[in-house]
């Protein structure tokens, strides 16, 4: 990969994940409004929200320096994670610099940033939210890890680009399909939407981790949440359904955006038609799913 195409694909990835994510959020709001028989906000409303919040007063309830720093870390680490996902072709821009474990851990850093923000804000509601967020994360992370490892065993490499290339070339097999199903079933938990938005439950703990945030910090974390939605939909669509891929960079990006739109539509349907789970129910669901997804690894070991 030469420098121009590397630069282009970095730009495209960051553009899709960070700059287009409010648009996708606007799309979900529109879909939700339609389901609930409302007119709903204009599609660009999420951009307006972020811009408005950026200029709002920044309320500071603590002198903890981490409180100032960590909201930005969440946006940055999502941007970093997006560089490990292929959007413009078979290989992600940073294929050479890290593998699936780096990806999993960068996703973890997003969670850490939010948890540290919450606990640095000194609010007990935020602490409850942080505790729930961590539990949710540690129960859902193994599912993604197992699915990616299934790909790695099949492809014989830990790099995401190699996994996607192999999958694109050799077509679906049983173990990868099973892994795909598992990732799909855990997608809502990965995104952190209903029924798994337990750490930000508005009615219960007043947005939990976000309670003390305002102004640019709140905008940052809101943006990070939107970007996370697009990021995990991209993970699902580009790694586990890597078809069709053409030679053209623009066409590939458009196909990726189309797939993401469909997945976000499905996820919004699930979100607006389901109630929120309790944390213990969510934990049991995720851990059972993780145990079940181990089957995919054994199938991959058998070579099917």
């Amino acid at each position: 990969m030469n420098f121009t195409s590397l630069f282009l694909s970095v730009m495209v990835n960051i553009f899709v994940v960070l700059l287009l994510s409010p648009l996708f959020d606007g799309f979900t709001r529109k879909v939700r409004a339609l389901i609930q028989s409302r007119v709903g906000p204009p599609p660009l409303q999420s951009y307006y929200d972020i811009l408005k919040l950026m200029g709002k007063e920044d309320l500071k309830s603590t002198i903890n320096p981490l409180f100032r720093f960590s909201p930005y870390l969440s946006v940055i680490s999502i941007a970093m994670a997006s560089l490990l996902i292929p959007v413009t072709g078979l290989n992600p821009p940073f294929n050479f610099f890290g593998d699936i474990f780096l990806f999993i851990y960068i996703i973890t850093v997003v969670g850490i940033a939010i948890i540290i923000t919450a606990s640095a804000s000194e609010n007990p509601f935020a602490y409850v939210g942080a505790s729930r967020k961590m539990m949710l994360h540690l129960s859902v992370e193994p599912i993604l890890a197992i699915a990616l490892i299934t790909g790695a065993i099949n492809a014989g490499s830990f790099k995401i680009g190699d996994i996607v290339s192999w999958y694109h070339l050799s077509g679906p097999n049983v173990s990868m399909l099973l892994a795909t199903v598992c990732v799909f079933l855990s997608l809502q938990a990965l995104i952190g939407k209903i029924p798994f938005d337990i750490s930000e439950a508005e009615q219960e703990i007043a947005e939990g981790v976000l309670i003390e945030l305002s102004g640019p910090k709140y905008a940052c974390l809101k943006w990070a949440n939107m970007a996370r939605q697009v990021l995990f939909c991209l993970v699902f669509s580009q790694i586990f359904i890597p078809w069709p891929i053409t030679d053209s960079l623009i066409l590939n990006t458009l196909i990726a955006l189309f797939k993401v739109t469909i997945i976000i539509f499905i996820s919004t349907l699930i979100e607006s038609l389901n109630p929120r789970l309790r944390i213990d129910q969510a934990l049991k669901y995720n851990l059972t799913l993780a145990g079940f997804s181990l089957t995919a690894i054994f199938l991959a070991l058998l070579g099917v």
């Binding site: 950026m54 007063e57 920044d58 309320l59 309830s61 000194e122 609010n123 509601f125 309670i211």
Partner: peptide, 10 residues
Amino acid sequence: AKIREVKTWY
């Protein structure tokens, strides 16, 4: 954005 110090909101 202006920064203002406030108390924790319970």
